[in-house]
């Protein structure tokens, strides 16, 4: 009987194993093989990337974008979640409005952003109509990288904050109202309630949101590709570029592995330093 149950369990697990082997394990192994394949030696592709001069700029851009976008999304997402969690009249309508960008792909978001900030876009038309500027302002192109950078940040924040918002709002639903009522009895200010009760309870949700958003931020390139091309190179964009434009799968795979390693390191740091402690641990 037990033996029979084991067989059924195995059969039920088979589709998952098949999925993992075909879509995760095989591509991963193949990527590793490609990344370490070069007639000049297994590390040649990585040496070529690191000594290219482009790599450090690419890594810096990726880290800076992640370092700005993710905290901004966290702060905005938290503020919006706390606001909607007040459950005022019509809060559901606000919730849906905030969640709209979730339905957009990064390409659509970038194109919408382009139509706002292009030289013939809505913003320039508006500013010229008001007589504030005589000629259009340029936000894109190599000479305007700084402006393009901030357009990318705005687009990414707008596009992906709703994900953080949804995760944190779900976390807020789990906050036991009795804790807050007790805090009221003890005369806690709203700030103290947030800092001493809500945020510690929300810690697992914050960790999840940070993890997901950081991993995605490292993979982001659609928005950047459309709004800046390779003027602002990022790691995922370089992987795509080497595969689809230069047709060099080895360098592209090496970039893919670098992204994986950096993401794993950052995820490890998140889990290590933000891991929620149990009450027992805190008591000790």
């Amino acid at each position: 009987m037990i033996h029979h149950k084991g067989k059924i369990a195995l059969m039920l697990l088979l589709p998952t194993f098949a999925y993992l082997i075909v879509f995760i394990f095989y591509p991963l192994v193949d990527t590793c093989l490609l990344a370490f394949s070069n007639p000049a030696g297994p590390l040649e592709n990585f040496r070529r990337i690191i000594t290219s001069g482009e790599f450090w700029k690419t890594l810096r851009n990726t880290l800076v974008i992640t370092g700005i976008v993710v905290p901004l999304q966290l702060i905005l997402g938290l503020a919006l979640a706390l606001f909607v969690n007040l459950r005022f009249k019509g809060y559901l309508f606000i919730l849906y409005i905030i969640a709209i960008p979730l339905a957009l792909s990064d390409v659509s978001a970038a194109l919408m952003s382009y139509s706002i900030f292009a030289s013939t876009g809505f913003l320039n038309k508006l500013l010229m109509a008001w007589g504030w500027i005589e000629r259009p302002l340029y936000f894109f192109g190599f000479r305007f990288q700084d402006r393009a950078f901030w357009v990318i940040v705005i687009t990414e924040v707008w596009r992906a904050t709703p994900l953080v918002f949804i995760i944190l709002l779900a976390g807020l639903q789990a906050v036991n109202k009795e804790y807050l009522e007790a805090a009221n009895v003890f005369g806690f200010s709203p700030w103290q309630k947030l800092w001493k009760i809500v945020l510690p309870i929300l810690r697992p949700s914050i960790l999840s949101a940070l993890l997901i958003r950081t991993i995605f931020a490292f993979q982001v390139f659609g928005v950047i590709w459309i709004l800046a091309g390779r003027d602002i190179p990022v790691l995922a964009g370089e992987a795509y570029y080497w595969q689809t434009v230069v047709y060099n799968s080895n360098i592209s795979s090496a970039y893919g592995l670098i992204i994986a390693v950096v993401t794993i390191l950052i995820s490890w740091a998140y889990i290590t330093f933000l891991k929620p402690k149990s009450f027992e641990e805190e008591a000790v």
């Binding site: 382009y114 292009a118 030289s119 340029y138 894109f140 192109g141 190599f142 000479r143 305007f144 459309i226 709004l227 800046a228 091309g229 390779r230 003027d231």
Partner: peptide
């Protein structure tokens, strides 16, 4: 020539 090329070209 690129003094007169639209900066948007790179997009």
């Amino acid at each position: 020539l690129f003094k007169y090329v639209s900066p948007g070209s790179s997009t």
